[in-house]
Amino acid sequence: MNVKLKTMIAGTTALAALAIGGAAMADGHTMKIGITQNNVGVDSYQTTYENSFIAAAEANENVDAVVLDAGGDVARQIAQVQDLIQQEVDAIIIWPTNGEAVIPAVREAFNAGIPVIVTNSNIAEAGFEFVSSFSGPDNVTQGSRSAEIMCEKFTEMGIQDEAQVVQISGQPGYTTAIERQSGFDDRLPEVCPNVTIVETQPGDWNREKSQTVMEAFLVKYDDIDGVYSGDDNMGVGALNAAIAAGREGIIFVGATNFAVGYEAMERGEYWGSIYQSPVDDAEAALQTAIDVINGEDVPFLNYFDTPKITQDNQSEFTKPVF
């Protein structure tokens, strides 16, 4: 099947879309599924997700997919949802740019009778009634598991009663960032009650910004024993700052194990993370949409597993492709 590029205009926003799939089947069972993603170019996870989604859609002759990217712009994403509604797609998959701001657009789709599947990062709870299913990782659990990894390492080192931690969170207002932080913040005191989180600052999923945040932490605090980052892209930015400053012995723990995090673990510079596959993420979202269209019973929170990965067990995991 061919992937053809077409440009559509929705309101005043120009939208680039990939239309995927062949002609409608004779029995009329072709499903038209639209997806609006958060920001494909921002990191390798999202790029790999898009490529995997396109491949999965192309491999299914019953699917005709319209693939859109909001470029991190809430207004553009809302316009994209409205455009998909006008196209009368059978389902809309949304990777929200902002968990609160997209709720009115999701409500519009719901009112138009189009099921909405939220992928990767959930919308705010106020919008749950308009959503058929969330497909993605359990981000609160990821944060909790990261806290456990860090506590276990501090205990092994014998510093569990005095360690100080700084945290670099994701993009403010973004559900994944909020959930990973809350999971970490809630779990760490349960397992290591005497460890202190001295400060949290956002790194916006960006390696360079996270490096700058960490540089400021290193100037401000003489004693940093651990760094928790909402993903490994940010975590490696923080690691780079520590290496440049000559600060050794800091335990780095992330979530969403990127290739750069995996490689830093192999070098012994980065301790642990949470293993999450963008391929699994994309394929699960598409399958969830297909199941919803077919009237199958789909759980509202349709999680795929994301296990702990540390230097101790990383040989059990293949290096991430992103």
Rank of each mutant, 00 (worst) to 15 (best):
N2K: 15
V3G: 13
T7V: 06
G11D: 08
G11A: 00
A14T: 15
A14P: 12
A16Q: 15
A17D: 06
I20K: 03
M25Y: 11
A26T: 15
I33T: 09
G34N: 00
N38W: 06
V42F: 09
Q46F: 11
T48A: 13
Y49D: 00
F53A: 06
A55F: 00
A55D: 15
A57M: 00
A59E: 07
D64I: 05
L68W: 11
D69G: 05
A70M: 04
A79N: 08
Q80G: 14
Q82N: 15
D90H: 11
A91M: 02
I92S: 08
I92H: 12
W95G: 15
N98C: 05
I103E: 09
P104C: 00
P104R: 00
A105L: 00
V106F: 01
I114N: 07
V118P: 10
S121K: 04
N122L: 03
N122E: 14
A126G: 12
G127I: 04
E129G: 09
F130L: 01
F130R: 04
V131Y: 10
F134Q: 02
G136K: 01
P137D: 08
N139P: 04
Q142P: 07
R145D: 13
K153E: 15
F154P: 04
M157E: 12
M157A: 14
G158C: 05
Q160V: 10
D161C: 05
E162G: 08
V165K: 02
V165N: 09
V166C: 01
I168H: 04
I168N: 01
G170P: 11
A177Q: 09
I178L: 09
D186N: 14
L188Y: 10
V195F: 13
V198M: 08
K209E: 11
S210N: 07
S210W: 02
Q211Y: 09
A216H: 13
A216Q: 15
F217I: 03
V219I: 14
D223W: 11
Y228I: 06
G235H: 03
V236C: 02
G237F: 01
L239A: 06
A245H: 06
E248H: 06
E248R: 06
I250F: 04
V253C: 10
F258C: 03
G261Q: 02
Y262S: 01
M265V: 07
G268T: 06
G268S: 06
E269N: 13
I274G: 10
I274L: 01
P278R: 03
V279E: 14
E283V: 15
A284K: 14
A284W: 11
Q287F: 00
V298S: 04
V298K: 00
N313Q: 02
K319D: 04
P320V: 01
V321E: 15
